[in-house]
Simulated assay, not measured.
Amino acid sequence: MTLTKSRIIDSVQEETGLPRKRCDELVEELLEIIKETLANGENLMVSGFGKFCVKEKKARKGRNPATGDDLMLDERKVVTFKCSQGLREKINGS
């Protein structure tokens, strides 16, 4: 099952007892801070959770899978995630 933004808001509401509208605002603001940080090319580290890194990919040759035609893929930025040791242990049940 996928964790949705709505379920996150519900969980925050249950844990804090705040009104749903306020929890919605808090979650939206947190996500906006995360997006702005990554859009500025900055890395984001959440202690005990992991690190989001912005990596630059160079332009490269690619192939259209539908037609088989060669093409050039533009350089771009991608976000990668490396989980913390604590999260890794929790996932693996250690």
Rank of each mutant, 00 (worst) to 15 (best):
Lys61Thr: 15
Lys21Asn: 05
Glu14Ala: 15
Lys90Asp: 09
Ser47Tyr: 05
Phe81Leu: 10
Glu89Ile: 00
Glu32Ile: 04
Arg60Ser: 13
Lys35Ser: 14
Asp24Met: 03
Val79His: 04
Val46Glu: 02
Cys23Pro: 10
Glu25Leu: 01
Val12Thr: 10
Ser47Trp: 04
Arg88Phe: 03
Pro65Ala: 11
Glu56Val: 07
Ile34Val: 15
Val79Pro: 09
Lys35Gln: 10
Leu3Asn: 00
Thr4Ala: 08
Cys23Tyr: 00
Leu87His: 12
Arg76His: 13
Phe81Asn: 03
Lys58Gly: 12
Met72Val: 13
Val27Leu: 02
Glu56Phe: 08
Glu75Phe: 12
Glu42Ile: 02
Glu14Thr: 15
Val78Glu: 11
Leu71Arg: 10
Ile33Glu: 11
Thr2Arg: 04
Leu38Trp: 10
Thr2Phe: 02
Gln13Ile: 06
Lys90Leu: 10
Val46Asn: 00
Asp24Pro: 05
Lys58Pro: 07
Gly41His: 09
Lys90Val: 04
Met45Thr: 12
Thr80Cys: 07
Glu14Phe: 14
Asn40Leu: 01
Thr16Asn: 12
Lys21Ile: 02
Glu15Ile: 07
Ser94Arg: 15
Asp69Pro: 03
Val46Cys: 01
Ser94Phe: 11
Ala66Trp: 03
Ile91Leu: 15
Thr16Ala: 09
Gly50Met: 05
Ser11Lys: 01
Thr16Gln: 05
Leu44Lys: 04
Leu38Tyr: 14
Lys5Trp: 13
Lys55Pro: 07
